[in-house]
Every structure is written in structure tokens, then in C-alpha cells.
Design a protein around this nucleic acid. Structure first.
Lengths: 109, 109
DNA sequence: TCTTAACCCTAGTTAATCTAGGGAAGACAT
DNA sequence: ATGTCTTCCCTAGATTAACTAGGGTTAAGA
């Protein structure tokens, strides 16, 4: 079935949402998503870092090097204003599309 | 934002579900999804036919040529037993993943 | 000193969907 | 009869997200 453990298109949404709560480094973002989803969502680093780079390039997030809770060098990301707008838009799209799929699943007969 | 009007990975699920309700030809499947979703989901023919071909190759659906309601030559698809199993599995995956995403969206703070 | 864990990164692959076409044939109006 | 519209099917090539499968550095702890 799905090799990807993620619905394509949701990674950006998840990352934006987590960063809205608080600035965070990449590794921490992945951990938080994993934790909040009760193990259901697992973000591969090979997916995450390219995604962060993409989003930075689009101006949705900004990075700054710092030191993590574990005293490691880490790159902290935070939402920009455009990132907040993007989050709003993607959240709406997500709601609309999942509602639509649910409708089809429910009413197909 | 999303250029695709679909969450990737949901097309198979939608098609399987519609075919579970009744055998149908490709064009009709697209119409039915469009209708049931109240215009929110639109399946491009360039996405649909390759998807039907993939699913037939995987043994989830079977095709037979016939004549449509409008007296046109049309290829009617129906679910196989394995297609029904696949539908069950994909429905579960869908529920699990959307629930997980919702959790993250809700509890990130 | 060695291992493990925390952190970051990238090249290349895979695969789903879209774009942008093409074509045949029935229906219907003129 | 001609032309146009609609229904139905199909495909090549592009795009792009996410994955696989690596690689590397450095702090902590045994």
C-alpha cells in the first residue's frame, strides 16, 4: 500500500503548525510530530531537511543557529508572517479536502 | 500552495470506494466523485486513467467493455476481491492518518 | 577511548498527479 | 449532410514530494 507513512502535502502543514507553537530545531520538530501523533506519523530526516529548506526559500520560515537543550549545535526555525498566512491557508485546504473525501466515503452508495 | 486539488494517495481510495457502490466506467467515476464532494474534488482524466490502469495491474479492479447510459462505448470497472480488501486497508490507513494529523494540529501548543 | 545519541545534510530514486495534448463516435441542430 | 458538442478513452512528458541510503560532527557517558 502506501510506502510513505505520510499523506503527501501534509508535511508542510505539520511543520508550520508545530513552529507556530514555538520556534524549534529540525530534529525537535520531527520528535514533536511523532510524539503528538502517538507514533502514527514519523518524519524521515531525508524528508524533513529538504522540506525545511524549501519552506525557508519560500519565505515561510527563518533559521538561526543556536544551541539545543542537549547542548548541541542546532538550527532553530521560526514562522515568518508569510508562514503564518500559509499555515492558515493550508489548514483551510486540509479541512476542506478531508471533509470532501469523508463525504465521498460516506455517501458513495 | 497545493497545485494538486487532491491529497496524494487518496485517488485510489476514492475510486475503490465508488466502485464498491457499483461498477462504473472511468468518466462516470470522475463525475460521481466530483458530484459527491460538492465540487471540492475534481479528478483529471490524465490522473484517472493511469490510476485505473495501475489498479487493474495490481488486481484490485477488472474491466469490461460495454455501452454507457449515453450509448457510448465505455470500459466498465468493478472491484475484485483483492480490491475490496485493499479498500478496507486504505480506509483504515486514511482514518488513522487524518486522525493523527488532526491531533497534531489540535495539540501542538 | 569508545560508543551512542543528537543534530545536520545531500544525491539520487520513486511514484503520484498534472498538463496538454490526441482521437473516435453518438446526438442534435441547421 | 454537415458541423459542433459531448462523452468517453488514452498517452508522453513534466513536476514535485517524499523516500532511501548514505555522510558528517560533536557532546555525553561508560
Amino acid at each position: 500500500m502506501n510506502k510513505t507513512e505520510l499523506l503527501q502535502g501534509t508535511l508542510d502543514l505539520l511543520v508550520l503548525r508545530v513552529l507556530q507553537a514555538a520556534p524549534m530545531h529540525g530534529f525537535g520538530i520531527a520528535q514533536k510530530i511523532h510524539l503528538l501523533s502517538a507514533d502514527a506519523l514519523r518524519i524521515e530526516e531525508g524528508s524533513l531537511y529538504p522540506a525545511l529548506y524549501r519552506m525557508e526559500r519560500k519565505g515561510w520560515i527563518e533559521a538561526e543557529w543556536g544551541v539545543s537543550e542537549n547542548n548541541r549545535r542546532a538550527k532553530f526555525y521560526r514562522l515568518t508572517r508569510r508562514g503564518r498566512q500559509q499555515l492558515t491557508a493550508e489548514t483551510e485546504t486540509w479541512q476542506r479536502l478531508t471533509a470532501a473525501v469523508s463525504e465521498v466515503l460516506a455517501k458513495a452508495d
